[in-house]
Computed example of a mutant assay.
Amino acid sequence: MKKKRRAPRDSTDERAGSKRKHRAVDPQAVKLAAHWLSDPQTPRWAHRHSAKGWAPLLTAPAAHNWVSADINQLIRDYRGITGHWIATDPHHPIKLLAGILKWHGKDNLDDRPAAAILAQEAEAAARRRAINECDRCSEYGWELDPTSGLEREPVARCSHIHHIHA
């Protein structure tokens, strides 16, 4: 009859106590992934993985100061430029985005896909703020006649508008 023995708990054998090792995750990449997942423009299929799951793939874009709008614009560009169809529920979302990033080019990450759009939005926001703060122009940026309060004839841009572009 064999003697029953319990499994050793304090083994010196490294294999017995080994656990799956996880790669260190770049916090900047996790932050980018979390922002991307919280963006309403992000495809639903992206939510099949956590921010930590996406982080290894997004490490290089995060190092180049990408934002969630860049990832979403890249996906739109890929579909529009290449004509490739993207499933609403792809089998391997991480592999899909990896392929799209490869198409963009790892040496091309300084060319952020949404940079121009974001710059235009920032300029428009600055223009709206300047118009709202100005008491010499209409809501559209046209000079007002100080006596009537109506837009001047002939219409002219208010002087603050010219300072935004300078």
Rank of each mutant, 00 (worst) to 15 (best):
C158N: 04
A63C: 00
A60C: 11
I100F: 04
L32E: 07
H92N: 14
T12F: 13
V30Q: 13
L118F: 00
L150Y: 15
E153N: 10
P27I: 05
L109F: 08
T88A: 13
E14K: 12
W36K: 04
V155S: 12
S68W: 03
I94M: 12
V155N: 11
K3R: 13
W142Y: 15
V30M: 14
D135T: 11
Q120H: 09
P90F: 10
Y140H: 15
H160V: 03
I81Q: 15
P93K: 08
R157L: 12
R152V: 15
G53Q: 03
P61Q: 07
H160S: 05
A46V: 02
V25G: 00
A126Y: 01
H91Q: 14
V67G: 05
R5S: 08
K3W: 10
L32V: 11
T82K: 03
P27A: 09
I81T: 15
W45F: 15
A119V: 02
T59N: 01
I117F: 06
D13C: 14
I161T: 05
H64I: 02
T59Q: 08
A126D: 09
P40G: 06
R129K: 12
S68H: 10
I164C: 04
S68P: 02
H64W: 02
I81N: 13
Q28Y: 12
P154R: 13
I161D: 01
G83Q: 12
L150H: 15
R9D: 06
L97P: 04
D145F: 11
A156L: 10
S18N: 07
I81S: 10
E139I: 11
R79F: 08
P43S: 04
N72G: 01
Y140G: 10
S148F: 10
K21S: 12
P61M: 05
L144D: 04
A166P: 00
A115W: 00
A122P: 00
W36S: 03
R20P: 00
C158T: 04
P146V: 03
I94K: 14
Q28M: 14
S68R: 02
A34I: 01
I100H: 08
D39L: 10
A119M: 08
L74V: 03
R23V: 04
L97C: 06
I161K: 03
D77Q: 11
P154F: 13
S68F: 05
T147F: 04
D145C: 11
G80P: 00
P93Y: 07
T88V: 06
S148Q: 13
I117Y: 07
T82A: 09
G99D: 09
E123G: 05
A69F: 00
E139N: 13
A34R: 13
